[in-house]
Design a protein around this nucleic acid. Structure first.
Lengths: 108, 108
DNA sequence: TCATTAACTTACTTTATGTAAGTAACTATA
DNA sequence: TATAGTTACTTACATAAAGTAAGTTAATGA
């Protein structure tokens, strides 16, 4: 009654990457470690969801959370090796977008 | 107040690909033209959403809808060039999944 | 006329996301 | 000592997206 041939690893990867914001968060962190508010404003995600996503991604070993007990406390999020390994995926998307995506002025 | 550097084409591509099911639908159609019910059962998506997605993808020139007036009518969905151009993206995801995704027995 | 089949729609429920205000922990300033 | 500022979150509530299941349409064969 369920799907036939789908590789469960691939399926899991897809369900991760097809969550809203996940790809953009990783793309953002590819530029280097960043704090919560930086990511929040650079991709205009809501704090509620960003918090949720970072927790997920940390739990899956894709994102690493570093705490610097300065004043006020500084927390930086960065990518693990597993996270950096997603760079080719993002680059292929960029590549496709360059070649095939048109921008319509009618807003989004 | 909005994001800074995000390329609008990339952003559009991401908002497409980070919709639930979109990636799996395209992955499925990479195997060749298929009818509605085939896609529906092979990725276990609800008909309501599949119908919605196929309409979207058709409108964006990624999917092509072909009608064969047989009995009962046969409708096949296939990928356009723009759609096939997404193959490298899906392959990179498969590649990443093979190397980095572990399957936990605790269900999904 | 009734049943069958595929491709959708529609109505309704559940889940995910957005918005905005609130909290915790710390420090600099009055 | 009290007040306000800073960052990283939470919480409560509203809206949007997705799931479920039943219904519709169109063509044909029994």
């Amino acid at each position: 009654m369920n799907k036939s041939s789908l590789c469960p690893r691939f399926e899991k990867a897809m369900s991760l990457l097809s969550q809203r914001w996940t790809g953009l968060i990783i793309h953002q962190l590819l530029e280097g470690p960043q704090r919560f508010c930086t990511v929040e404003t650079s991709i205009s995600i809501s704090g509620r969801v960003l918090s949720e996503r970072l927790k997920d991604l940390e739990q899956q070993g894709i994102v690493i959370r570093n705490v610097y007990p300065e004043t006020p406390v500084r927390i930086e999020y960065s990518l693990s090796d597993k996270g950096y390994a997603l760079a080719p995926v993002l680059h292929e998307i960029e590549n496709w977008a360059e070649h095939w995506v048109e921008i319509d002025d009618t807003g989004k």
